[in-house]
């Protein structure tokens, strides 16, 4: 990110010196103002969804789903000890539900446990699952569209689901193909 920032910032600002030097500062201010506006919108959206996910977490819905996932985890990761399997299913179920706050710590634990046993294939599988994102309900996108007065904010539900399922499937398939 630092490299991208440096390159874009220096190039753009240099071009601006030649075409429109007066507006370098006002462009930066515009960016800042947009960030403030977006932050306000996001505060509202996150207040809703962190509230919801706190309730979900307390009811233990995610550990129920984690249990349902157990066969899928056995299939993807092979035989694992109880602790690893628990962290993996917690990570995957939380990611499915869009509970990033729960998913990340579990993912870090699972990665550590897998690396201790030098399970490179397991690590790679975990990475593909996490980085191709398998969220069922794109809550932030739907809420943000609602804030921008969309007529039907949730009409992206199915295309998003198909698309994210495709990326995960392709990822797992490629991993199978390219690991001996």
């Amino acid at each position: 990110m630092n490299l991208i920032f440096t390159v874009i910032f220096v190039l753009s600002a240099t071009i601006m010196i030649f075409i429109d030097p007066e507006n370098v500062l006002s462009a930066l201010n515009d960016g800042g103002r947009k960030a403030v506006e977006l932050s306000l919108a996001l505060t509202a959206i996150y207040a809703v969804w962190s509230g919801v996910s706190a309730v979900a977490e307390k009811t233990g819905v995610n550990s129920k789903i984690a249990k349902l996932l157990s066969p899928a985890i056995k299939f993807l990761f092979g035989k694992q000890d109880e602790q690893t399997e628990k962290q993996l299913s917690l990570n995957i179920s939380a990611n499915l539900l869009g509970l990033g706050g729960v998913a990340t710590p579990a993912g870090i634990n699972a990665a550590e446990l897998l690396s201790k046993r030098e399970d490179e294939k397991g690590l790679h599988t975990l990475f593909i699952l996490a980085s191709t994102s398998i969220q069922i309900l794109p809550s932030t996108v739907i809420s943000l569209r609602a804030q921008f007065a969309s007529a039907s904010p949730s009409d992206i539900f199915l295309p998003t689901l198909f698309s994210t399922a495709l990326s995960t499937a392709v990822g797992l398939l490629l991993l199978r193909v390219f690991s001996k």
């Binding site: 947009k34 959206i45 962190s50 996910s53």
Partner: peptide, 26 residues
Amino acid sequence: GAGKAIPLVFSIFPYLATILMMTELF
């Protein structure tokens, strides 16, 4: 849970601001 929205936005604000300034120049 809802209370956690504020620290969350606080934590991403620096990046939102920086990226938006960068994209504006861009």
